[in-house]
Design a protein around this nucleic acid. Sequence first.
DNA 1: CCTTAAGTGAGAACGGTTCTCACTTAACGA
DNA 2: TCGTTAAGTGAGAACCGTTCTCACTTAAGG
Lengths: 144, 144
Amino acid sequence: MARDARAAYGAHRMSPQRERIVHAVESFDGAFTAEELAQTLSAHPDTPGQATVYRALTALEESGFVARVGERDGAVLYARCDTDGHHHHLVCIGCGHVSAVSCPVDESVIRAAARQRFVITHHEVTLYGVCRSCLAAGWTHEAH
Amino acid sequence: MARDARAAYGAHRMSPQRERIVHAVESFDGAFTAEELAQTLSAHPDTPGQATVYRALTALEESGFVARVGERDGAVLYARCDTDGHHHHLVCIGCGHVSAVSCPVDESVIRAAARQRFVITHHEVTLYGVCRSCLAAGWTHEAH
DNA sequence: CCTTAAGTGAGAACGGTTCTCACTTAACGA
DNA sequence: TCGTTAAGTGAGAACCGTTCTCACTTAAGG
Ligand SMILES: [Mn+2]
Ligand SMILES: [Mn+2]
Ligand SMILES: [Zn+2]
Ligand SMILES: [Zn+2]
């Protein structure tokens, strides 16, 4: 029961299942769905149940250990988030590789909103593109 | 069969159902779900079927007549989009009122991505806040 | 008109996610 | 080291927004 996995769940309890889930999350290079995470976990005995995987993802998102970075085929895409401070994500539409980017929502945007009598509470920003290795592999937008 | 509704569907055919759907969309001040749209339509006889409403929304989104502006209770939130050119949306979390905002993703963000060997293809930006009338009505984030 | 590809809709199916509930257990204090 | 208890687990069912099926209707171009 590694102590480092403990922190990933914030105030939540630790369990052997959650320990394995954290490690499985760390085994991904980039974005993954709940189903893919469960699939990875099923390679070992004592596979955590489906409900446990979903509950763990919710807890991991609350603590900031993972973040939602889009969706694929109707399923939420998650990714490990190890960058501190407010930022957003750049997701490769070829392989799912995720990179952190600084927030583009600056004072001028806030002021533009204020001009429309809005007080901004939060925002969502996600950038999509093609990473270096996918470009090198000849990835094309048309071939999905 | 108004000619103006025709354009909202791009290359798609017009039908009495789609005509009514366009008008129902225009009756909303801000964001709405497919269900709410269908609910509005059901006030009159010859209510378009559920499948027709979903298909119309897909067509209206393709043509740019509406845009997705978030989700509520697992359902996609749409809003009329009458602004030309590339822009994003500012949604009131109190009443759903939607306002257009200019895109904050500028050259510096593109360059930051390029520094990480990424070529950006597209992006999603949505701002959330509280509009003037909701502020005046004492809307608080805590009370949802 | 004629032809035909597109649209319609009642109902079934789909599928990601959440819920139920009996059972187990991590965490904490005595 | 225990006892207590709120939290976690998981098989299976339920949920529910959305999509599909398929027989029928119709908009639109020639
Ligand atoms: Mn991150
Ligand atoms: Mn718009
Ligand atoms: Zn890639
Ligand atoms: Zn408002």
